[in-house]
Amino acid sequence: MITLIYQLLREDEKFIIESAKKLNIELNLLSADKLILDPRNFQFKDKLILNRCLSQFIGDQITHFFETFNIKVINSLEVNHLCSNKFITSLFLIKNNIPTVPFLVFFHEEMIDKVSQILENYPLVLKPIYGSWGRLLAKINDRDAFEGIIEHKKNLSSPYHNIFYTTKFIEKPNRDIRITIIGKKIVSCVYRESFHWISNTARGGKIKICNLDKELENICQNLIEKIPEGIYGIDVFEYQNGYLVNELNNTVEFKNIQKVTGVNISDEIINFCLEKINND
């Protein structure tokens, strides 16, 4: 019924396998290493693909391929496109009046003084437009650091490192908020606590339960109305008695959230897959 495509089976995927067994749903595992995407010999027997590839680029090729043959994939290419490029995510948030962190993109080191002026001085945060788990993020405290990091980035091999996606640094209360949205539903809401300015759990952030208040719930509902249906991890900062949505993530990791909150996110994922199959 459902094919789970993966590169590495992590605890998250093992939770999904357990949920499928428990709910008596046929879930076939397919390692991306064994795939040949050959359109002339296309054969596929299941009704839906749950794409859990670790690599964004490999995952996108797989999703694109199967969607070409009208096979439903979760998350869809539309969701992946919205989440994987941080500049595209930020533009989407601005366009839809979702409160977000002030950001901009520039391409040349000559612009750094103008950039720091527009973003109201240092500190700033420089992020690769693609990437996850807090990798290659730089907090820039002054002009010297900005100049040095830009020079280093210009010497990295991938062309996207020459796209300087820069945001204002948001002073947070040693935590951020991660909200999991599946379909139209807010499934969980947790704090990720850390004394480091990067609070990702991949970087050691600790999970604690967070109760959604009315304001945050309204932001989420507004977001749910605007985003294509899928499985999302929404990162939110608390700022000046309000909230700023920082990032939208696809291929959501949830093992720690599931353990701490007791919310069975893997059940929710399987149920969402069934809902998509039945909506055919």
């Binding site: 964004q56 680029f57 989440c83 996850s132 991938s158 291929t251 959501v252 990791e253």
Partner: peptide, 9 residues
């Protein structure tokens, strides 16, 4: 395997 640049959420 080591973590690749495009791995993650």
């Amino acid at each position: 395997p080591n973590i690749e640049e495009d791995w993650g959420e």
